[in-house]
Each structure stands twice: as structure tokens, then as C-alpha cells.
Amino acid sequence: MSNAEMPDGDLLVILRHGPHGTSWLREGLDAALVGAAFGRRVALLFMGEGVLALLDGQGAGALGQKGTSPTLEMLEMYDIETLYVEGPAMARYGIAQQDLLLAPVALEDTVIAELVERHALILTF
């Protein structure tokens, strides 16, 4: 993906935790939804363990937590359509595009650095 195709945005939320075990992912997604609800241009980047959040077919789990896949399915309703995933992390976890719930654009590390530069505010969870 070249620079020209990568839009500038207000808020980039970087998600680096999986869907279960901690509340990082849920609270990060909340920040993204609120930013979008306030009319900001929001992009999401799933990095490292965060790529696991995108796996299709997740359940809520046994702990009485709501799970995050319903929130991911709502992103489009909030006009959060700019989705990126760290390509090398997908390879590390053995995940292919067809395993994913959504269709994020896979980025190499050098492009991720450019993505960060093109956003006014970065929140990392």
C-alpha cells in the first residue's frame, strides 16, 4: 500500500491485546467508538496479539464477559471502516485473511510507521 492510498485521520487506535484475559481490547474499542461518535475520523490497527481479536467464530466465553466480536461487528455502523492489521503478526499466529471476521488491510512494519505519522492522535491499548 502506497502513501497516496493511506488516508490521514484524526485518531488511530492501536489494539495489542487479545479478546479475553484482560479488558484492554474492550476499553480500546470503547475509545474508538466514542471518537467516531464525536465525529472524528477513526482508524483501527490490530497489532501483535491484537490480531486474535479479528478471528471469526468467537464465543463470549465462560467468564460472563460480553466478548468483543459483537463490538467489531458494530464498527461499520459507527463509520469506522479504516481497518489495518499487522501482516507479520498474522503470519506469526498462522492466521489467513479468510479466518477473519472483518476485512482489514494487512500492513508491513515500515508502513505502520507511516500510518502513525499520518494521524493526529494515537491511543494504544
Binding site: D10, V34, G35, F38, L121
Partner: peptide
Amino acid sequence: GLGQLVDVGL
């Protein structure tokens, strides 16, 4: 609210 965080950040 979290909206304040986004406003402050920007």
C-alpha cells in the same frame, strides 16, 4: 466521558 480524552488528545 471518553469523548473528553479524544478532545484533549487532539
